[in-house]
Design a protein around this nucleic acid. Structure first.
Lengths: 230, 230
DNA sequence: CCTCACAATCTGGTCAAACCAGAATTACCG
DNA sequence: CGGTAATTCTGGTTTGACCAGATTGTGAGG
């Protein structure tokens, strides 16, 4: 059994089987037979799932799937194994980005140092190049936003945002297929950078607000109507 | 070997051993002997570590420790295995809490539903009980704050905050050893709840600001001076 | 002495068979 | 029908083995 697909497969199976059995999943031995692998392999997968708090293993009792599969680890995990976020979660994710980045822009304006400016310039320069070559911003957009978070000098904050953005990456790629959107996005990045250079916190956050508003309205066009107050 | 301490122990050993050997960790068999456990146990731990991107296992070659151990998974992991955050990161974590919760209070004021109110009331009632019995708020504080996030109806946001708060839990317990702080914290929770009931977003967020300011000043007393602009 | 090819060794990946002790279930007796 | 004793089941852990590529060691030839 190629380990590649094993974890996703067994996860899906566990969740499905548990749903139909009061949260209790099949035994390790059953799983091993079901997937035609040794019990050791199953246990390795289960160890990961347990560490991610997706399941709970109770000695001499059984395996139980946590109902509220929560935690960023689980999210990162789902992203890694390819389970797409629900449409609703995309809006929620954008809202979280707004919460994070508007504040990040504000803080960065007062805390950014020379290295931060250099990094931002570098990202913008590479963005310029890509656009000149008719290519999409792609990951460079993410890089730009993360550099702003980095400029807050808050490493915990940066860690959170880094992990979080990795999740939405798949979806964002769609956004950057349009040349106009790419150019407009780049221009807004430039403006935000200028605001940071001037250490104008309120302007930076205001620009970020409208920048992200664009993303939100884009998703509104593509997807189903957004949730109530987002 | 009690599994309780195994993961932390083996992790520390891996990181240390790898640092002195060009990133390469001891073999599974060596680790098994070193910790007096079976190779299967070692492999389970390694599977978790690999899923968390702390290490990389190359077939027929060896185990390599990733140098830039980053990402929220790693953070959550370190918290779980008991490695304390640096003092500086505590300030950063509090700042992140501020970013999250001030906005959460604002959003919750307009989005909270009856179930949210009921949950918040429940937490407050239990807090009341504990205080009456002379015990500290302990986890109830965390519960209260998470319920506010839940009231934003943003599940992605809730996921992030849930994982994140698990990190600071160890440290927060210190805070709630003081009876005065407990009572004052509880009163502020009550006030925030009232603001949410009145759907007064600006009041709710303002109260949250001062509530968290208390925590920040507490840490300032206990720990080294805070970083520049936090 | 150096180089290159071959052989022994080491490594992670995987499997199989057992034993343990407590949980869960079944069977049986009153 | 109720309750207890016997049995099955479950996760936890260990041992030992085999595979195939990566690594290392060795020795012959230049």
């Amino acid at each position: 059994m190629q380990q590649e697909d094993f974890l996703p497969a067994i996860t899906a199976h566990l969740i499905e089987a548990a749903r139909a059995n009061d949260g209790k999943a099949p035994s390790e031995r059953d799983l091993a037979e079901k997937f035609q692998v040794s019990r050791g392999l199953v246990r390795e997968a289960l160890a990961i799932l347990e560490a991610m708090q997706v399941i709970e293993r109770r000695a001499k009792s059984g395996i139980y799937v946590n109902d509220g599969i929560g935690g960023i680890e689980a999210m990162a995990f789902f992203a890694r194994i390819g389970l797409p976020l629900e449409n609703r979660q995309i809006f929620e994710a954008v809202e979280v980005r707004k919460i994070h980045e508007i504040k990040a822009a504000e803080l960065a304006a007062s805390r950014a140092n020379d290295e931060n400016y250099a990094r931002l310039r570098d990202v913008l320069a590479r963005s310029e190049d890509r656009l000149r070559q008719g290519e999409g911003l792609d990951k460079l957009d993410q890089e730009f936003h993360l550099e702003i978070v980095r400029a807050t000098q808050n490493t915990v904050f940066l860690n959170i945002c880094t992990s979080f953005y990795a999740l939405s990456h798949n979806r964002l790629q769609v956004y950057f297929r349009s040349p106009e959107r790419n150019r407009r996005s780049h221009e807004e990045h430039q403006q935000i950078f200028d605001a940071l250079l001037r250490r104008d916190a309120s302007l930076a956050s205001a620009l970020m607000v409208s920048h992200l508003r664009g993303a939100m309205s884009y998703w509104s066009e593509i997807l189903e109507p957004p949730p109530a107050g987002a």
